[in-house]
């Protein structure tokens, strides 16, 4: 268990008292979800309401990769978005470890969640969403630069990731909006892996990638696990799932 150094780097701060500590005393536990309930109400479409998640519990340890499993529409993505605090939840707790502190993101202040996302919580989807006209290398290194890391180091790491993901060097200085879907997706993966997040959420990052690049993503996931990251992912490709999953967790439609 080589987590101690990782956590100090990522959290950047020493222990702060927290009332939730007793719920998750084991320092290896990075994610603790309990009794999660989520429903959507569409007020402008007749106020129809449907429940997507009910009574979901999950614990993910450091160095572990959990793959969410279930049919399309079962709520896998909704669950992952809730873990990123992108969706709010109606009931339950999502406690994430940020260094020595535990944060329940269902009730945390927006600025606490933003700090958590900058240093601890990474999210990679298959879609790239960036400011138009910003160059690829800048897009990729931005999250690391925001942490105050020296620009030279950020740039180097960005370029290493881009070459590993087979994004041609002639594209690096161009803005990614004109790239092919696959290229944009790989730029997005590079951006998602530029910071060594202790918790990583992967929403089908390999969808529509070719075998060669899927293999690179699998390598990146293995490296993240090796340095102690807790990973929750959704993967449609069976080969990727087989290669990275320590555990499959069923998400069933309510």
């Amino acid at each position: 268990m080589n987590m101690t150094s990782e956590i100090t780097v990522a959290g950047g701060k020493v222990a702060q008292a927290c009332e939730m500590k007793e719920n998750m005393p084991d320092p290896a536990v990075m994610i603790q979800v309990s009794g999660l309930q989520k429903s959507f109400t569409l007020h402008n479409q007749g106020g129809v309401s449907f429940e997507v998640l009910k009574g979901v519990d999950l614990q993910v340890d450091s160095g572990e990769c959990v793959v969410l499993h279930g049919q399309s529409g079962a709520g896998k993505s909704t669950f992952l978005k809730a873990l990123y605090a992108n969706y709010s939840v109606n009931e339950g707790q999502i406690v994430l470890r940020d260094g020595d502190e535990l944060v329940d993101i269902t009730s945390a202040q927006p600025r606490r969640i933003i700090a958590l996302r900058e240093q601890t919580l990474g999210y990679v989807s298959q879609f790239l969403r960036v400011i138009p006209r910003v160059s690829t290398v800048d897009v990729v290194m931005q999250p690391l630069l925001d942490l105050g890391v020296d620009k030279g180091i950020c740039e180097e790491k960005a370029k290493t990731l881009l070459s590993r993901l087979n994004v041609p060097e002639r594209l690096w200085q161009l803005a990614p909006s004109t790239f092919s879907g696959g290229e944009q997706q790989r730029v997005n993966i590079a951006r998602g892996f530029i910071v060594d997040y202790p918790i990583l959420l992967l929403d089908e990052p390999t969808a529509s990638l070719d075998a060669k690049n899927r293999k690179v993503v699998v390598e990146l996931i293995h490296e993240a696990k090796a340095r102690g990251a807790a990973i929750v992912g959704i993967f449609h490709d069976e080969d990727v799932r087989e290669a990275v999953a320590d555990r499959l967790v069923d998400i069933r439609a309510v």
């Binding site: 950047g12 925001d146 942490l147 105050g148």
Partner: peptide, 10 residues
Amino acid sequence: SAERQAGKWQ
């Protein structure tokens, strides 16, 4: 920005 980062939410 690193210093600011550390103190941002505390």
